[in-house]
């Protein structure tokens, strides 16, 4: 028989352990963020943001990487949003639970789990090679679109499901068709939730590296069309850091990435809070 410990004592020990775990997580987050920001922010200058990199990124700025990030992200969002939101509407409004919806949900959940390097392989063989799009903004953006599709499907579906069912009844009872009900009542009501999903998708695009290297390449030049190869901020940072090209510029780029992710997260949270506040 083991030693009997007073339940009150275990309660106290457990409480301490659990609180310290939570504090550890917060501490880790702040350490990482503050470390990167404090080393990086001093190197961010106006020039750094507005000049094209030169000498492999050793000097010059990161303008082409900013443009590259923007371009692949826009392609991804433009492609994934209608597909994701459309799928969510199909699942909530156009069908009842059935084998078909199960398969669609299973596919989306499976997509969410696939590692980004596998997306990279797929994007490389399908978009770059098979569809002959080459290493380009288009290939990179389409690969990212596939990656963020499950996020947009899930958040949109949740958002549409929180629209009170009576809104649909009212709209139908006033002679509204399904299409009218969707465009005039459901979409406006679910918009903040849908936007949250899109913002999270943007965050994922900005942060992604592995899938983009294999599909958009890592060209330093300013992209000129959808078919130009491009380098995103995350890829630029990876190359600067791993090849030891310029630690200063690496820190500065990382700091910009962190700031972007912070802003994106704050935006998503503001939207979520708005939805919650509205429901009260």
């Amino acid at each position: 028989m083991g030693i009997r410990v007073n339940p009150r004592t275990t309660q106290k020990i457990a409480k301490v352990v659990i609180w310290s775990a939570a504090i550890l997580v917060l501490l880790l987050l702040f350490t990482i963020i503050i470390y990167i920001l404090s080393k990086g922010i001093p190197h961010i200058t106006w020039q750094f943001l507005t000049e094209i990199p030169s000498d492999m990124g050793k000097s010059g700025g990161i303008l082409s990487a900013i443009v590259g990030t923007l371009a692949v992200t826009i392609v991804a969002i433009v492609v994934a949003t209608p597909l994701g939101v459309g799928t969510a509407f199909y699942l909530t409004e156009y069908t009842r639970e059935s084998g078909v919806t199960k398969i669609i949900r299973f596919s989306a959940e499976s997509l969410a789990g696939i590692p980004s390097i596998v997306y990279g392989l797929f994007g490389f063989i399908f978009f770059v090679t098979y569809l002959k799009l080459g290493w380009s903004i288009l290939s990179g953006g389409l690969t990212l679109a596939v990656m963020i599709l499950p996020t947009i499907i899930r958040t949109s579906e949740e958002a549409i499901r929180t629209v009170p069912p009576m809104y649909r009844e009212v709209s139908f009872s006033l002679g509204g068709t399904k299409w009218q009900t969707m465009t005039k009542v459901l979409i406006p009501s679910a918009l903040p939730g849908i936007a949250t999903g899109i913002i999270l998708g943007i965050g994922r695009c900005v942060a992604e590296t592995a899938a983009i290297i294999l599909t958009a390449g890592s060209a330093l030049q300013m992209p000129t069309s959808l078919f130009s190869p491009a380098r995103t901020l995350a890829v630029h940072f990876y190359i600067l850091a791993s090849e030891g090209i310029s630690l200063e510029n690496a820190y500065a780029t990382a700091a910009i990435l962190i700031i972007l992710i912070l802003l994106i997260n704050i935006g998503a949270n503001l939207l979520v809070n708005r939805v919650v506040a509205k429901r009260r």
Binding site: L29, I32, I36, E208, A234, A241, I261, N265
Partner: peptide, 17 residues
């Protein structure tokens, strides 16, 4: 939100750190 932020930090940044 802090945990959500942890999920959003690019993996290259984790690697670098």
């Amino acid at each position: 939100p802090a945990i959500q932020l942890l999920a959003g930090i690019p993996s290259v940044v984790y690697g670098f750190w």
